[in-house]
């Protein structure tokens, strides 16, 4: 059997990659994808720990996390499309009208 710590390490690596992407990317769609990756890393942790403890709770948390991710993506992509319509760009460095 694969030790649970391997899964947790993998999850940590994926989460770090997601953080790196969120900080470096300028395209909000790619930032969004990096957030999805971070959510998935968290899901992997939930399931690995749940499997380690022989419990269902990890999987149930993951189901809720999936539902939240779906809701977040639909609203987030709606916001991106709206921004593109009004400003013809979605580069996060140029969408700064709240800055004076």
């Amino acid at each position: 059997m694969v030790p649970t710590s391997y899964y947790l390490t993998l999850s940590a690596i994926l989460f770090s990659l997601g953080v790196v992407g969120v900080i470096t990317k300028r395209n909000p769609i790619q930032i969004f994808m990096c957030i999805e990756l971070m959510l998935n890393a968290a899901n992997l942790t939930f399931i690995a720990i749940g499997h380690h403890l022989g419990q269902m709770n990890g999987q149930i948390y993951t189901i809720f996390s999936l539902a939240v991710a779906a809701a977040e993506v639909s609203v987030g992509l709606g916001i991106i499309i709206t921004i593109f319509r009004s400003r013809e760009t979605i580069n996060v460095d140029e969408v700064n009208i709240l800055k004076s």
């Binding site: 059997m1 030790p3 649970t4 710590s5 947790l8 390490t9 940590a12 690596i13 989460f15 770090s16 953080v19 720990i49 499997h51 380690h52 403890l53 022989g54």
Partner: peptide, 19 residues
């Protein structure tokens, strides 16, 4: 980031095979 996690031994108790 992963090295910090390793260093704190967060995963230390989880090396055994799963039930």
């Amino acid at each position: 980031f992963p090295m910090v996690l390793f260093g704190f031994g967060v995963f230390a108790g989880l090396d055994g095979p799963t039930p």
